[in-house]
């Protein structure tokens, strides 16, 4: 059985569309891998216990807190980080645009959590009411805003995404 045990392991990650083959140490969190190996520092560290959500990314189309995802368990995965939300031509995702226009954030440190949560929520529920937004962003802490501007921004994003031009 010893031949199964390795000191590092190979993962294939397609991050924001770009394929990376990486040999990772067993203990590395996805957060550290993204920030320190791939230099994608838009994903933030806030607690390392999975409570604050500032480290949120999308793993295989579903949002996750990257600080509590062990990178070595992602044998093959598709990752989208906050840097990957923009379209290839650099245009902001409607959720990003709405958060900026509506002053959704103040310091913006929680942005990975709020933006990713809103993207996933709006995919599932294009017209969320207050309660749906509250539970949709429940996994992310914001300390600046008292959340009301964030709710406003998610609603504005919904309107944009439902409009024919979007």
């Amino acid at each position: 059985m010893e031949d199964l045990l390795t000191q590092s392991t190979l993962v294939q990650l397609r991050v924001n569309g770009k394929l990376h083959e990486l040999e990772v140490m067993p203990f590395t969190s996805l957060l550290d891998l993204l920030r320190e190996e791939l230099h994608l520092t838009g994903t933030h560290m806030g607690c390392m216990t999975g409570h604050c959500g500032a480290c949120t990314v999308m793993v295989n189309g579903r949002i996750a807190k990257s600080c509590i995802v062990l990178a070595s368990t992602l044998e093959r995965a598709e990752i989208t980080t906050i840097e990957g939300l923009r379209t290839a031509d650099g245009k902001l995702h409607p959720v990003q645009q709405a958060f900026w226009d509506e002053a959704g954030f103040q310091c913006g440190y929680c942005a990975p959590g709020m933006l990713m949560s809103a993207v996933e929520l709006l995919k599932e529920n294009p017209n969320p009411d207050d309660a749906a937004i509250e539970s949709g962003i429940a996994g992310t802490l914001c300390r600046c805003t008292g959340y009301r501007s964030i709710v406003r921004a998610v609603k504005a994003a919904a309107v944009r995404m439902n409009s024919p031009e979007a």
Binding site: L5, M48, T49, G50, I68, V69, L70, S72, T73, E75
Partner: peptide, 27 residues
């Protein structure tokens, strides 16, 4: 044994738990 990591990783990140072997059962 590790699967989603949600329970284990907070302890690993803070050094409360320093496993010698991780067995990934996701496969």
């Amino acid at each position: 044994v590790i699967a989603g990591g949600q329970e284990l990783m907070p302890h690993v990140n803070h050094g409360v738990l320093q496993p010698e072997v991780y067995v990934d059962i996701n496969a």
